[in-house]
Amino acid sequence: MRYMVRVLVKFKAGVADPQGRTILAALHSLGYEGVRDVRAGKLFELVVEGTDEDAVRSRVEEMCGRLLANPVLEDYEVSVLRALAGEGR
């Protein structure tokens, strides 16, 4: 089976995020004063082959720990979105 997997990587809580801070200031300067915080991150969409959802998830979590995220700075969230129809059966 092939699965569509979405990985969200962002700075850990407590790690200053210069991009988020600058975007926040830009939003304020546009008049969006109600915005209290912005955290910038990275989004990856992967198409991954695997026997089932759990196997795919644990494989992608391993990829996050080794490459997609830097564990010193960043947290990651893995979402297995769906099995892709008509592929790899």
Binding site: A16, D17, P18, Q19, T22, N70, V72, L73
Partner: peptide, 17 residues
Amino acid sequence: LLEAGLLPGAMRPNDSL
């Protein structure tokens, strides 16, 4: 060296961007 774990820590973008 940081990414390889040969030294501790990590680099962020400069605070000035």
